[in-house]
Amino acid sequence: MRSLPWRLIDRLRAPAPDPDRVGWMLRHVFAHRALHGEGRAENSPAAFRAAMDAGLGIECDVRRSRDGRAVVFHDATLERLTGSTGEVDRMVIGELTHVALSVGGETIPTLRDMLELVAGKVPILLELKSDPDRQVNTLCRAVRRDLEGYQGDIAVMSFDPRIGQWFARKMPQVLRGLVVTEQEHRTYSGTIRRHRDLWTARAQFLAYDIRDLPSSFAARQRARGLPVLSWTVSSRALRERAQNHADAPIAEGEGLA
């Protein structure tokens, strides 16, 4: 009885999508940060090309530049992935696209360049990276600008439910998802937060931390029609877990075997 109000509100605030709209998610394995390794940097053009050659979907990360352009890059700062320093959102696009990645030597790609390269050949999951202390409008507008007119299966997702909320209002034709981890939030207050974030985002699918599966929250959403993808599937054992408790893996390394 305790779960009944959740179920009713979930249906009202985050209705399940048309199965035909999300069917492509269930038919693919997604390469986490594209197919990196063997001299290919994560989220690099070489990694995008390798994923396409392997017939894999692509999951990648998107941040914004200081002047409101979308770039494909995971971290908030440059240090881990390049030989440079600095915060991504404090640099203009012309600076960022001249920064070389430490592996492979390619430069940081813009989202527009990545979309032109993929051109609908494989599906794409865009994880939008935001700062909880800042507005998301500039980031979302930058992504919308590049997505307009794109022909291919694509969806946006984020830990930040404001991202889904923005796309539900401004670009509802684009599928939107909520990225979820239960780590350190396996309490009743954590359950409340997950439902609240689901409603705010009006999520049409979930990208779930593989460490948390099986999960009663994920299972309930999946049962009512929200696809559940799972990250980061990095071993054969985790691949089996994803097969049992999710609809598609977001995988790397041995998880792609």
Rank of each mutant, 00 (worst) to 15 (best):
P5R: 03
W6N: 10
L8A: 14
I9R: 15
D10E: 15
R11S: 15
R13Y: 10
A14Q: 13
P15D: 10
A16S: 15
P19A: 11
R21F: 07
R21T: 06
W24E: 00
W24G: 05
M25L: 15
L26H: 07
R27W: 01
F30K: 02
H32L: 08
H32D: 03
H36D: 01
H36Y: 14
R40T: 00
A41I: 01
E42V: 05
N43M: 02
F48N: 00
R49K: 11
A50V: 01
A51H: 09
A51Y: 08
A51L: 09
M52E: 09
L56Q: 09
G57V: 05
I58F: 10
I58L: 12
I58M: 12
E59V: 06
D61V: 07
V62E: 11
R64K: 14
V72D: 04
F73I: 00
H74T: 00
D75P: 11
A76N: 10
L78G: 07
E79Q: 11
L81M: 14
L81P: 05
G83S: 09
G86E: 02
E87F: 02
V88Q: 11
V88Y: 11
R90M: 02
S102T: 04
G105T: 01
E106S: 14
T107K: 15
I108H: 04
D113A: 13
M114W: 13
E116F: 07
L117H: 09
V118L: 12
V118N: 13
K121F: 00
K121N: 01
K121C: 00
V122L: 13
V122M: 14
P123L: 04
I124H: 10
E127Q: 11
E127W: 05
K129Y: 07
S130V: 03
D131K: 13
D131F: 08
P132I: 06
R134F: 03
Q135F: 02
L139I: 03
L139C: 08
R141A: 10
A142R: 02
G149M: 08
I154C: 14
A155C: 11
A155Y: 10
V156L: 06
M157Q: 14
M157V: 06
F159M: 10
F159Y: 15
F159P: 05
D160Q: 12
P161R: 09
I163W: 05
G164W: 07
F167A: 04
K170T: 01
K170W: 04
M171G: 01
Q173P: 00
V174A: 07
L175V: 03
V179R: 06
V180W: 01
H185L: 10
H185V: 04
H185T: 06
R186M: 06
T191F: 06
R193W: 14
R196V: 02
W199Q: 12
R202S: 15
A203Q: 11
Q204W: 06
Y208C: 05
I210P: 12
R211Q: 11
L213G: 10
S216C: 09
F217Y: 14
F217V: 00
A223R: 15
R224W: 02
L229R: 07
L229V: 01
S230Y: 03
S230L: 06
S230K: 03
S234L: 01
S235F: 09
A237R: 15
R239K: 10
R239M: 02
R241N: 12
H245D: 07
H245K: 06
H245Y: 14
A246L: 06
P249A: 11
A251H: 09
E252W: 04
G255Y: 08
L256M: 07
A257S: 10
